[in-house]
Design a protein around this nucleic acid. Structure first.
Length: 478
DNA sequence: GCATGATCATGC
DNA sequence: GCATGATCATGC
């Protein structure tokens, strides 16, 4: 029988229903006898679902896969970790055509035309399985709730803004919150493309959805909530009108985790022209010059000044969050860092990151490395400065992402570090004085605290650090 | 005075 | 038990 007789290709819910026929099965379970050898292998699972299950030829054009229903089919992996099922990687959408995308408004953009309504298929990735044996776990329609769409639209504007200013080569995934622009292509050099407002070549990039954002879709789905955000008047109105506060409450989708709470419950909380980050910074600016103790008193917090999560608790209070986590920061994978300046304005301490896992870094590629992934995140820097009485006072807050030219230095640093470790050299890493951005430094319980190496020896635990001087420069540039 | 090494306190 | 955020101690 012709496959499209099994579903109504004009009806999203019929497609969703048909897709759910994959649940708890693998492609081999369903289509084993039809599978040719050429199909076994890697990376083509999405195409196989399209051809085998839905019975149509995969396209890569600018229209949604199911044009009449306006539905784009996406197949993406989840994995098991200690917390349960989570997204394995970012969800990659269409490649950004630098020469075209900037000509449109968000509403008419390639991204929105293709991806406004998604049919998401999540399968369970397992290390040593063939792709046709992966089991499908979630099949659902997805439309971005309005509070999220607002952020996604701002993200899209940020990305397109870089194209318009001739800076497509300086786009970083950390520039944006939910919608990213990830690199796509075999090697960075091969995938270089022209951009309209600069002679510089820019690495090819695709729109993508951050991995942590997907966790919310997964969590919601596993709880059995498959409600599709309605395409109502409010939604349509938002798409048409730029940055216009709306009067009607947003349907939203509430809290996906019980201990998580959004800062912005309704897009009417945005003033005209404001982005999400503008709102956050405005909230913080009200508390500039408050001392730590004054903030604790102001918000009636029951913490002492030595508590390790002190700064996070203060940040949450300023943002009006009483639950454990901040929904938008979670989804956007925003990293909060506090910085304490001396009264003179200097910065004594460098910023430390995780310990270098000696056995892991030697097998990493740059773009899946710990260091690359950390540095391409969006950071939220909360800066205190000591006053004459040595009391730390909130000086300012800012969002920050490492500029791409600095990321190139970080790449050199990472390459050198990896080479050293491969060679069993644990003494000659980049140091604070040598270079201007990052260095390796010990971080452990004490000097007897050791970690195994690829050489099966034990070495002192050391971490990735960003140089204090560099951090200070970034703060001053803001 | 500053770079580097070292370690503490907390909380998961 | 240990990673992490934070900060101290030393020695050039």
């Amino acid at each position: 029988m012709h496959k499209d007789l099994l579903y109504d290709k004009k009806d999203p819910f019929s497609l969703e229903n048909y897709a759910q026929g994959l649940l708890n099965k693998s492609l081999r379970d369903l289509y084993g006898k039809d599978l040719k050898n050429e199909y076994s292998g890697k990376g083509k699972l999405g195409q196989l679902v399209e051809s085998l299950h839905f019975g149509y030829k995969p396209n890569s054009n600018s229209e949604p896969d199911f044009l009449e229903a306006g539905v784009e089919l996406k197949t993406t992996p989840i994995k098991k970790n200690s917390k349960g099922l989570v997204s394995k990687e970012r969800l990659v959408f269409n490649i950004i055509d630098f020469e075209e995308e900037y000509k449109f408004s968000f509403n008419e953009s390639s991204f929105w035309k293709k991806n406004s309504l998604l049919l998401l298929l999540f399968y369970l990735y397992e290390n040593d399985k063939c792709d046709i044996d992966y089991i499908f776990k979630i099949a659902r329609l997805w439309r971005f709730p309005l509070t999220d769409l607002k952020i996604i639209k701002d993200d899209w504007n940020t990305i397109v803004g870089k194209i318009k200013s001739g800076n497509a080569h300086e786009i970083s995934e950390g520039d944006t919150l939910y919608l990213g622009a990830c690199t796509k292509g075999s090697t960075a050099l091969k995938s270089n493309r022209n951009q309209p407002f600069s002679t510089q070549k820019a690495p090819q990039r695709a729109f993508s959805l951050k991995s942590k954002y997907l966790n919310f879709i997964i969590s919601k789905s596993l709880k059995g909530d498959f409600n599709l955000t309605k395409l109502d008047d409010e939604y349509l109105h938002f798409l048409k009108v730029d940055n216009n506060p709306l009067k009607e409450p947003s349907s939203g989708y509430g809290n996906l985790f019980d201990n998580t709470e959004p800062i912005i419950k309704n897009i009417s909380e945005y003033k005209k022209g404001q982005t999400f980050e503008d709102v956050i910074l405005e909230k913080f600016s009200k508390y500039y010059d408050y001392s730590e103790q004054e903030l604790i008193t102001e918000f009636n917090l029951n913490i002492n000044l030595k508590a390790k999560n002190k700064n996070f608790v203060i940040v949450k209070s300023i943002l009006g969050i009483s639950k454990e986590k901040i929904e938008e920061f979670e989804k956007a994978e925003i990293e909060i860092k506090t910085i304490k300046l001396e009264a003179t304005g200097t910065l004594k301490e460098s910023m430390s990151f995780a310990q270098i896992k000696y056995k892991e870094i030697v097998n990493e590629d740059w773009e899946d490395s710990y260091w690359y992934n950390k540095l391409t995140k969006r950071f939220f820097l909360v800066i205190f400065q000591k006053d004459k009485e040595n009391i730390a006072r909130l000086k300012k807050a800012m969002f920050w992402t490492m500029p791409t030219q600095d990321l190139k230095v970080a790449y050199k640093f990472w390459t050198q570090t990896k080479t050293n470790i491969k060679n069993g050299d644990y003494e000659n890493f980049w140091q604070l004085k040598n270079h201007n951005i990052c260095h390796v430094r010990p971080k452990a319980t004490n000097s007897l605290d050791l970690m195994e190496t690829p050489q099966n020896t034990l070495e002192k635990k050391k971490s990735y650090w960003l140089n204090s001087e560099y951090i200070l420069k970034q703060i001053q540039n803001d």
